[in-house]
Design a protein around this nucleic acid. Structure first.
Lengths: 143, 143
DNA sequence: GTCGGTGCAAACCTTTTGCAATCTA
DNA sequence: TAGATTGCAAAAGGTTTGCACCGAC
């Protein structure tokens, strides 16, 4: 819901497009790289400003991965969670949710949301011998 | 399991103590502040170096909260997850886990760990009118 | 023509690293 | 004493902000 004073610019379009086209949550760095192929000279600051704008507007959502900058995906999809491949570092959507989180809350706590993050190896990396790619996957969280 | 060449210093002791004494996951900033009350002149770099050391050794664990630096807690506790109060920003442990995450994995994916983060208002903040404290709680994730 | 948006550069914050001095074992 | 550890300062990301120019409406 763009406020009445907000304008549609090539930059904003390109940024939203980059996120939509990616199909998986991606970091600002990547968004900038992608969007810049459509809008030459696009500044990184503009990417950050736009990301905040879109996030506040509820158009996109931030996905946090331990030890990495936030990844962004389009909001408004069905309820889902994420899988982080320790080998290649990519983040995938996963269907399903076991729910029932309210019952685990301590007495008096109000729960209004939750996030589930799975760790492991994606189908691609699971085939490979031992080491995956060099991309990422610094292990900051216990298995 | 300290490697045979690792030494016990006041600094490391103070840092581990600070985390243990806190009772809830806290960020490096806070660890530094706490530990410095025992070891005057403790450098922030030492805190970071020690945190990495302890994390690699499996003594402590990092807990990621959207939009905030990682919080650290002692490892080796029973299986549990976390609750992030949007009002005061504190992070609490919560018991229980619905498990069954493997069945939600896409075909061919190997799951070797998971993290669950609940959002809402803690018991203290739930009592308050509308606005909690000023501490934190930037909302970067969808409810 | 207005006023919001953009690019650039500088500022900020958190985290890491280089190095000489210090302390543990 | 040897070598690990520390503190300080500088460097290295990632993110935000100030400002003059540009462009959508």
């Amino acid at each position: 819901m763009p406020s009445p004073t907000e304008r549609n610019t090539r930059q904003r379009l390109a940024i939203r497009e980059a996120i939509a086209a990616s199909g998986m949550p991606i970091p600002p760095r990547e968004i900038h790289r992608q969007a810049r192929s459509n809008v030459e000279g696009l500044g990184l600051a503009t990417v950050y400003r736009t990301l905040k704008l879109l996030a506040d507007a509820g158009v996109i959502t931030a996905v946090e991965i331990p030890g990495q900058p936030p990844h962004y995906e389009l909001a408004g999809k069905h309820h889902h969670h994420h899988f982080h491949c320790r080998a290649c570092g990519r983040v995938f959507e996963v269907e399903g949710c076991c729910g029932h989180f309210e019952e685990h809350a301590p007495r008096g706590f109000q729960i209004d949301g939750h996030e589930v993050l799975l760790f492991g190896r994606c189908a691609d990396c699971a085939k490979l011998p031992e080491r995956g790619r060099t991309t990422a996957a610094k292990r900051t969280t216990r298995p």
